[in-house]
Write a protein that binds this DNA or RNA. Structure first.
Lengths: 186, 186
DNA sequence: TTTGAAACTTATTTAGTAGTAAGTAGGTTT
DNA sequence: AAACCTACTTACTACTAAATAAGTTTCAAA
């Protein structure tokens, strides 16, 4: 069984992806875990601490994902699909991604949290840049311009796509991402 | 001179684009306008009312912009650049767009506000779709797939680009949008 | 068997939040 | 002149937020 600390981070993550950092409280977490407000503060003295923990856990998840995909020798196409699958999961559950949620709130957050949001973005951005670069070399992908710029464009479509999916519909996301992939594949 | 009601909406808009709907209060507005909290409630009884007013004002701005551009006979390229200029202005002022901000918070907002967010998105989406369709016909633009899908992709890049610009840098936005435009122009 | 740290609860504080009721100054209408 | 309206202020309610101090339980190691 997961320990309380991990459960708090998991729940906070879900609340952030659903409502945003400024729209959930320690009381929400305490209620869901059937503990008291102060117990959450025991593990994460300030909300800032909790925010940092959430973003670091995200980085750890991505690190593990990248590692597993490379160990399994998954192709560049497969790696891109794995990333898209994560966003499909978000959209299905009416969630947006951590980058979109925390990015929108970035100016209300402390320096420490801002740094972790940036680290999160850069980690995924560098990964996608590498996928594109290697995939182009192998003639799997076609695109104009720099791989890093194209990677940013792909992330933009995933991030904003997930946001818009909740405003319009999940289908809107699927259509856009399908077209994005079609343009990319040779 | 602008009346108080308009000033409240303008200020609320700025606060939403900077911090998000759930991260500003009536007190922020009252303080800035040197009036009392209750005076804001006089004009907008609930925060929901204020949210609706902000989104309707946005729609009105876009409607006027589209009208002016068409009256002046601005080309499809010029129209797209006008949209991009708005986002450049946002990025310069460390703001995100109303769609990105309110879209991120959509599940914390009432039905009435959600509808206006959707209306806002659809208005801009249809406009960009028309620009692309007409521009392609005139051999100004090149793109694969449906104009409406490509329009959504452009909006995704603008929306998420503005969000990421605050996390990374304004330059990151400019690079991505420059590449986006380059891919689009014949 | 004691001890001591980890993981809580209880109870409270401080500082906001949206929202409202009642009153008022100054202008407009009848 | 009386009645009314607009745009507020004053003073408040009810509630929620994050945060903390002090006390309690639990359980494993000495």
């Amino acid at each position: 069984m997961k320990d309380t600390k991990t459960e708090i981070v998991d729940l906070a993550t879900n609340l952030i992806l659903e409502r945003g950092f400024n729209a959930f409280s320690y009381a929400d977490i305490a209620k869901a875990l059937q503990i008291k407000n102060a117990a959450v503060h025991y593990h994460f003295p300030t909300k800032e601490d909790l925010g940092v923990a959430v973003m670091k856990q995200q980085q750890s998840f991505v690190k593990t994902l990248i590692h597993n995909l490379k160990v399994q020798g998954v192709s560049e196409i497969g790696q891109l699909m794995a990333l898209i699958d994560i966003y499909n999961g978000c959209v299905t559950n009416k969630l947006i991604c951590a980058l979109g949620s925390m990015g929108s709130d970035v100016l209300t957050l402390s320096e420490r949290v801002q740094v972790e949001i940036k680290n999160d973005y850069v980690q995924v951005w560098e990964w996608v840049s590498q996928i594109l670069e290697a995939g182009k070399e192998k003639n799997l992908f076609r695109f104009e311009g720099q791989a890093s710029t194209k990677a940013a464009m792909i992330l933009n479509n995933l991030m904003a796509g997930a946001i818009v999916a909740r405003v319009l519909s999940p289908q809107h996301f699927k259509d856009v991402i399908a077209q994005m992939v079609a343009e990319l594949l040779v």
